[in-house]
Every structure is written in structure tokens, then in C-alpha cells.
Design a binder for these strands. Structure first.
Lengths: 260, 260
DNA sequence: CGATTCCTTGAGGCATCTCAAGGCAAGTGG
DNA sequence: CCACTTGCCTTGAGATGCCTCAAGGAATCG
């Protein structure tokens, strides 16, 4: 019912038949300067001349079908990916099958920065719905950054942002209870929806209860019960994956129960 | 008794009186090329010519006394810090007083990379024992990196490494039980001691039970009980902060109970 | 030598997990 | 079009791992 709320207007430059999902290079290339995500994505904060230089790279665009992986843990690191549309989850696997979701990525967000450390991706990225990404060849980007202190700084800042994001997730996992965790999660989604021009109070979650649970360090049953508890408290209305926040302040207070 | 094991040979280039703790610049400067930590620290992976260029920056050295902060959450970001000796903890505070320790840093490790995102430090760093650091002015480093793709790459790799480190901490906080968490923590310390040329099986912890607990997302009593449980299982011997791992394989198995 | 800090251990409580059952929606094959 | 499967979500009931509260010991410090 509200699926449109989560996703930017679909891009129809190519037909589904054009491109096999495994293709590493897409027939169509993309320029940052004309991209509708330029204020959220890589070029954010760059001046006109630097964006023009980015355009020189002409990033390959690629479709990823729901359930397919953009890359797997251990894959050779070659690209950084920018989400154009759709939602991804990043996750690590333990040998016994346990998995930890380390993040959810929406349009304009970057994927794959963890691969730089060792030259291999440290996590896997899977599309939670049909998606489209820009594949940014790291070697080229790096070359380009050598000539621009600004671009260099933007890249560093994006990596630092990832570090800060993980800090708060650690705070969440380390010292919050179930209600605080879910409230923090929903408020975060809400903010990111708002930044993308969608309603911050009504949206469609693309991830399952189990994925939310893994991300928040709780079992799927607890996620479900906590949703029900919020609903009973009249903080929100849930119907499966559709969420409407009816009391944003109340939810913020639930998040700050102990944070104050 | 084994305090020496954790700390590199003390550096005695200046007396304690030389330098007030709050001084932001130290009278003595340091060069990477002659530093005994060059294989662990910033210059790791750089060629001779790049290291020589780093030398041009002449990093200010600074002492930090036990319990003193190197920087606080919210401080303006100007420097990246390299630990020369001693141990630090990084932590965030919640308004209600809860704190989350986000990491412990040993000689050769970097501090402050989280400040790049917003220009303000997102966490505080406190010395767990008298320590010495190099203050690396980010603006200068950044300038220097503009002329060297290699240096740039090294910085990016260090940031990526931080991201990967936090990934595994998330795994730990999100899906491991108390024994697995403490085992993972001790094995990590063990490896870092080994990398610094110290015994990987016998060392002195610089952090309190409460700090370990915050880092691992458990209460200090649980940390203490888990230490006692490991001791009962003959995996290690603990006496307050002194730890001797008597069965490294067994401890590894405790870590992999479910990881396999 | 009292004050303080940190660690250990015990006992009981509780938040979350585990196990289990059932509902709903979408997909599939006859 | 219907029976069946499958995946996902919800809810209940009981189990349990960790937390909370409390007391006491050991080391450090002024």
C-alpha cells in the first residue's frame, strides 16, 4: 500500500532483459552531476569542478534483484557501490549459521567501504528488494582523489561517518533494552526517509523481523512483541511491514527512557 | 608483577615536569622514520620516500596521565592521535550517565578518526595508564596525502580497518553469550600483544571489570563471574588484572562454541 | 588506619530467549 | 478455482542467562 514511499521514482533507462544480474559492468553509465541523489551521495559537499571530474569516471550502473548479493564476504574488493534505488542489508556470517546484520542501506548510501582494509569484503551485501546501484571502481576513484584534496576529504568523511554510525549501534547493542533498541531503529529509519523526501511517519520496512532482530541483537519474537507493545502504547500502528508512527514524540521518549 | 609485558620500553626523552598535560603542542617532535612503532602505526605499508615526507610533519609528542582525557566527545577535531605507549579507552556517554566503551587502543594504534565525519569528536579518549601519543594535525596530513596516492590509501585503509573492527564487535554484541564475548576479547588482546612482541598468553589488563563489561555489553559482575568460570575450566589463571592463558586452544574453542 | 576503589561471590528477580502453535498472504500445482 | 505448501508474523507459556542488590575481601592511598 505504501511501497512507493520507500523508493525513489523508478529509473527506466533499461529494460530488465538488458542486463544479467551477474554482469559486473552495465551497458549504461551514470554521471553524478545529473543524478537526483547527488546531495545525499558521494558528490555531496563537492564543488562543481570536482563533480565534473567525478563525471569523467562514468560509473557503471547495475541492477540487483531482490535476494541477490551485490558482493559476498571474502570477495575481492574492487568497487564501492552507491545505492541508486532499493534497499540493501550488509551482514556477516558465523560458521554455525548465525548471522549478524551490520546495516541497512538506502538510496544515496554507500556500500563496500569495509573491503578497503584487507582488499577483500568483510561482509556481504544483499538486496532486500529489486535495486539499482552505481559501481564505483575504487582504483579510479583513488586516482581521481589524488588530484583533489576536496574529493579525498569527502571520501574520508564518508568512512568516518560509517565509524560513527557503528559507534551508536554499539551503544544500542551494549546498553539498551528491547524497547529502546526498536525505538532507536524506527527513529533512524524515520530520519533517513525524511532526508529522502518521504514521510518520516509512515513507511514500508523492507526487512523481515528476523533481520531487524539480528541488527538490533534480539530475537524475531521479541521484535514482534515490542512492535505490539508500541502499538498498545499508541505510539505507532503496525501491519506487517507497514509502519505508521502516530506519536513521534512518544517514540522519541521511549528511545530516551534512560537516555533522558 | 607483569606490568612490563603490556607496555613498550618506556620512552624517556623528557621528564614529567617538561610538559603540562593540557599542552596541545609538545616541545619534542617525533619522526616516523626512526620510530620503533613504524611497522604497526601510520607509516606501515609506506615506502621510504613517503615516510620521509611524513617526517616533514614532525608530529608533536604529548604525555597523557592516567585518567586524563586526550579529547572529549564534542571537542573540535584537529588531530589524529597515534598511541606511542600506554593504553586508552574510547567511549561515548549517554545523558543518564550510562557509558559505552567503544574500544581500547594500544601502542601503534590510532585514535580520533571518528572526528572527521562532523568535525567534532564523536567519542572521548581517556588514558588507562600514563601514556604518550603523537598528535598528527589532520589538516597537514591531508595536505601531504594530496601529493601521495600511497599515503592516501594507507589512511583509507586504516579507517576501513576501524569499520571492520566495529563489525566484529557488533557480531559480538549482537549474537554471542557472555563466555564467547569474554573469550573473543581475551583472544583479541592476546593477538595484539603478540603483534607488539609481548607474550600472547600472559599479560596485564589495563582496564577495569566495569570497562570490559561496558565494551562487551555485560555487567561487571558477569565479567567477573565469567573470568572465574574460565579459571574453573582451567582455560586461564586470573589474579585481578593479571591474566595467564593456560589453554589457548580451549579458549579459542570457548569463543567458537557456536562459531565452530 | 580509615576511606576508597575494585573485585568476587551469593541469592533472587526479570527481561529476553526458547519452544510451540496458529494465522495470514502469496505462490504453486492439480 | 481450490488444496496445499511455504514464508513470515504473532502470541503464549515456560526456561534461563544475565542483571540487580547486597555483603565482604583485598589492595591502594592520603
Amino acid at each position: 500500500m505504501h511501497t512507493a514511499a520507500l523508493q525513489p521514482a523508478p529509473l527506466r533507462f533499461m529494460t530488465t532483459a538488458t542486463l544479467a544480474r551477474t554482469a559486473s559492468t552495465a551497458p549504461l553509465k551514470t554521471q553524478c552531476s545529473t543524478c537526483h541523489l547527488k546531495d545525499l551521495c558521494l558528490p555531496c559537499g563537492l564543488t562543481g569542478s570536482d563533480v565534473q571530474r567525478l563525471d569523467g569516471l562514468m560509473f557503471a550502473r547495475r541492477r540487483v534483484k531482490e535476494g541477490d548479493a551485490l558482493y559476498h564476504e571474502g570477495d575481492k574488493f574492487q568497487f564501492i557501490y552507491a545505492v541508486r534505488s532499493g534497499t540493501f542489508k550488509s551482514h556477516l556470517a558465523l560458521k554455525d549459521g548465525r548471522e549478524q546484520v551490520t546495516g541497512f542501506q538506502m538510496a544515496g548510501e554507500l556500500l563496500g567501504l569495509d573491503g578497503l582494509a584487507s582488499g577483500k569484503h568483510a561482509s556481504s551485501a544483499v538486496a532486500l528488494e529489486d535495486a539499482e546501484i552505481c559501481a564505483i571502481p575504487y582504483a579510479h576513484l583513488s586516482e581521481l582523489a589524488a588530484g583533489s584534496a576536496d574529493l579525498q576529504h569527502v571520501i574520508s568523511r564518508l568512512m568516518s561517518r560509517e565509524i560513527v554510525r557503528e559507534h551508536s549501534l554499539m551503544m544500542l547493542l551494549g546498553s539498551m533494552n528491547a524497547e529502546e533498541r526498536l525505538a532507536a531503529f524506527l527513529l533512524n529509519i524515520s530520519q533517513r526517509m525524511k532526508a529522502r523526501g518521504y514521510s518520516p511517519t509512515e513507511f514500508h520496512l523492507r526487512m523481515s523481523r528476523a533481520e531487524i532482530g539480528s541488527y538490533l541483537g534480539m530475537k524475531l519474537e521479541t521484535v514482534s512483541r515490542t512492535f505490539s507493545a508500541f502499538q498498545a502504547q499508541r505510539l505507532l500502528e503496525v501491519d506487517k511491514k507497514h509502519v505508521r508512527i502516530s506519536n513521534l514524540d512518544g517514540l522519541t521518549r521511549a528511545f530516551e527512557t534512560r537516555v533522558q
